[in-house]
Structures are given as structure tokens and as C-alpha cells.
């Protein structure tokens, strides 16, 4: 149970960073933390005590405490998507720094209304 709570805490830390930080890079880091909290949660859900890989073997060997491989595949996909988004946002932050000369979102506010 405690691991799930820690996972939730990690997610909240990420969301808190996104909402309250003023530095673009810190916002991106917050997003990465929140994202990996979700991935971690998915892996935890799939965890089996004493589990083994789901490879079929002839009857005397049982694959009973089998680990469901699907969540791992999904998390892998989610990580790849996350990397693409992160790379894109870091590139964006660099271009913003070139134009505005700052990472501070309080000073990057030309759009309003």
C-alpha cells in the first residue's frame, strides 16, 4: 500500500511543480516527474510476488504466478511518447529563450486578454 501512496505523492510533486514554478525548465521537469509517476503506477499494478515470464512450457512446469506482459509493453510505449513530448518542449524552451532572453514565465507574457 505504501508504494502506491508514494507513487501518488510523486505525481502530486510533479503537478505541483507544473502549477507553481516560474521557470520553464522546472515546469518541464515537473511534467517528466508526473509522467513517470503514472508509468511507475502502471508497473506497480502489474507486479506479482514471485512472478515469472509468461513463456509456455510443457505441463510439469507451471507458469501460474505469471506476470502480465501487457502493462510493460504499454509503459514502454508511454515512455517513448513522453520522450518525444519532452524533447519537443525542451526545444521550444530553447527557442523561447532565444526570443525573450529569459526562462521566467512571469516575463514571457505577451499574450493575454
Amino acid at each position: 500500500m505504501a508504494v502506491y501512496v508514494l507513487c501518488l505523492v510523486l505525481f502530486c510533486v510533479g503537478i505541483y511543480a507544473i502549477l507553481s514554478k516560474r521557470n520553464l525548465i522546472k515546469i518541464i521537469i515537473g511534467l517528466i516527474v508526473a509522467e513517470h509517476a503514472v508509468n511507475l503506477f502502471f508497473i506497480l499494478v502489474a507486479y506479482r510476488i514471485g512472478g515469472r515470464a509468461p513463456i509456455f512450457e510443457p505441463p510439469p512446469v507451471s507458469i501460474e504466478p505469471m506476470v502480465d506482459p501487457l502493462p510493460h509493453a504499454l509503459v514502454l510505449t508511454a515512455i517513448v511518447i513522453g520522450i518525444a513530448t519532452t524533447a519537443f518542449m525542451v526545444a521550444l524552451a530553447m527557442r523561447i529563450y532565444e526570443k525573450y532572453g529569459t526562462y521566467d514565465i512571469a516575463r514571457i507574457r505577451e499574450l493575454r486578454g
Binding site: 520553464l24 511534467l31 513530448t85 519537443f88 518542449m89 523561447i96 499574450l111
Partner: peptide, 12 residues
């Protein structure tokens, strides 16, 4: 300037 700022906000 504006495109980048808007895109960052949108991406987050």
C-alpha cells in the same frame, strides 16, 4: 515570440 509562447502553454 507569440507562437512559441502559445505553443509552450498548449504543450504543457
Amino acid at each position: 515570440k507569440h507562437e512559441l509562447e502559445a505553443a509552450f502553454k498548449y504543450a504543457v
